[in-house]
Simulated assay, not measured.
Amino acid sequence: MCEANVYIIDKEGKETLLLESVDKVVPTEEGIFLENIYSQRKIVKAKIKEMALVGHRIVLEEK
């Protein structure tokens, strides 16, 4: 399996789970498009802070 859980860090530094089992991450003009294996989709205004794919973890930081 190649999915990762995506977490977001807000402006206060708090990290929360945003979306589980994400298999698609696409930067767009609106933000970062995420899609998981259940076809759930989100676009977030954030930047990628860290990707640890062996650990199945992607961390985004709010813009």
Score class of each variant (00 low, 15 high):
1 M>V: 08
2 C>S: 08
2 C>W: 14
5 N>R: 09
6 V>C: 01
6 V>S: 04
8 I>L: 06
9 I>Y: 02
10 D>P: 09
11 K>P: 00
11 K>S: 15
12 E>V: 07
12 E>G: 03
13 G>C: 02
13 G>F: 01
13 G>R: 06
14 K>A: 12
14 K>I: 11
17 L>V: 03
17 L>P: 09
19 L>Q: 05
19 L>R: 03
19 L>D: 01
21 S>T: 04
21 S>K: 13
22 V>P: 04
22 V>F: 10
26 V>Q: 12
26 V>S: 12
26 V>W: 06
28 T>H: 07
28 T>P: 04
31 G>Q: 05
32 I>M: 06
32 I>W: 05
33 F>D: 06
34 L>F: 09
35 E>T: 00
35 E>Q: 14
36 N>D: 13
37 I>G: 05
37 I>Q: 12
37 I>F: 13
39 S>I: 06
39 S>A: 11
40 Q>S: 08
41 R>N: 03
41 R>T: 15
41 R>M: 12
42 K>C: 00
42 K>T: 02
46 A>W: 02
46 A>P: 04
46 A>N: 07
47 K>Q: 12
48 I>W: 08
49 K>I: 02
50 E>G: 01
51 M>E: 14
51 M>L: 07
51 M>S: 08
52 A>Q: 15
54 V>T: 13
56 H>K: 15
57 R>P: 08
59 V>Y: 05
63 K>M: 10
